[in-house]
Simulated scan of single mutants.
Amino acid sequence: MSEPDFIRNTRASYDSIATEYADRFPDDLERRPLDKALINAFAELVRSAGAGPVADVGCGTGHVAAYLSSLDTPVFGIDLSPKMVATARQTYPDLRFHVGSMTAIDLPDDVLGGIAALYSTIHIPDDQLPDVFTEFHRVLAPGGHLLLAFQAGDEHFELTERFGHAISLPCHWRRPENVTELIDKAGLVMHAQVIREPNENEKLPRAFLLARKPR
């Protein structure tokens, strides 16, 4: 079966900008205290459930995985881009990072205590997103938690340039109520929803959705 265009384009785009991305955004969380607080709450829920490690899906350069690890949360990263994974491994040599896709996670059923997918599902087309949430449900252990973050809006476009590189990166801003409906259909139970207004360098609100897999 041939690889979908959105996967191929997303991988190639992030491979092109991996070095510049790491230089520009070494640790976004330092500028976003509310985001950090929500990750803290997610980590506490995962530790309390004791259901397994966290997969940081779409981990990029690895700073979220590193922060979760600093909270004594077992974690590893997965990213589509080999160059992003190489950067994460170099920056955080004590953590594990793997090349992979959220559309087909290379793990058995019911093994993860948590999934963090922060601004990574934005590259998944609408017709593929239900399957991604079904995959999240599959690999989460009963009692495991999902933390999702994305730009809240209603726009689909292709980003064609970043840091001076020509790229072809699909982007999908979504309404939180539409995403929560898909999460519910995948068999996950919504736990909390937070909408954060844009920071000084942002144009759109940020949506954070916290869900869990029933025991």
Results as ranks from 00 to 15, higher is better:
4 P>I: 00
4 P>S: 05
8 R>T: 03
8 R>D: 00
12 A>L: 14
12 A>D: 12
14 Y>N: 02
17 I>K: 02
19 T>H: 13
20 E>S: 14
21 Y>Q: 09
22 A>H: 09
22 A>T: 12
25 F>S: 11
34 L>N: 11
36 K>C: 06
40 N>P: 00
41 A>H: 12
47 R>D: 01
48 S>C: 11
53 P>C: 07
58 G>S: 09
58 G>A: 06
60 G>W: 07
61 T>M: 05
68 L>D: 04
71 L>W: 05
71 L>E: 04
73 T>I: 07
78 I>M: 14
81 S>Q: 10
82 P>Q: 11
82 P>Y: 14
84 M>W: 12
84 M>F: 15
88 A>T: 11
89 R>W: 03
90 Q>S: 14
103 T>P: 02
103 T>Q: 13
104 A>M: 07
104 A>F: 08
105 I>V: 14
106 D>K: 13
111 V>L: 10
113 G>Y: 06
118 L>M: 13
125 P>K: 06
125 P>V: 05
129 L>V: 09
133 F>D: 01
134 T>C: 07
136 F>P: 06
140 L>G: 05
140 L>T: 06
140 L>F: 05
142 P>M: 07
143 G>N: 12
146 L>R: 07
147 L>A: 09
147 L>K: 09
149 A>E: 11
150 F>H: 08
152 A>H: 14
153 G>H: 10
159 L>W: 11
161 E>A: 03
161 E>C: 00
166 A>L: 08
167 I>N: 08
167 I>M: 11
169 L>W: 04
169 L>C: 04
171 C>D: 13
172 H>D: 04
172 H>M: 05
176 P>G: 06
177 E>P: 00
181 E>R: 12
187 G>Y: 03
190 M>S: 00
193 Q>T: 09
194 V>H: 14
197 E>D: 15
204 L>V: 04
206 R>F: 01
208 F>G: 04
209 L>H: 07
210 L>E: 07
210 L>Y: 05
211 A>W: 04
214 P>H: 05
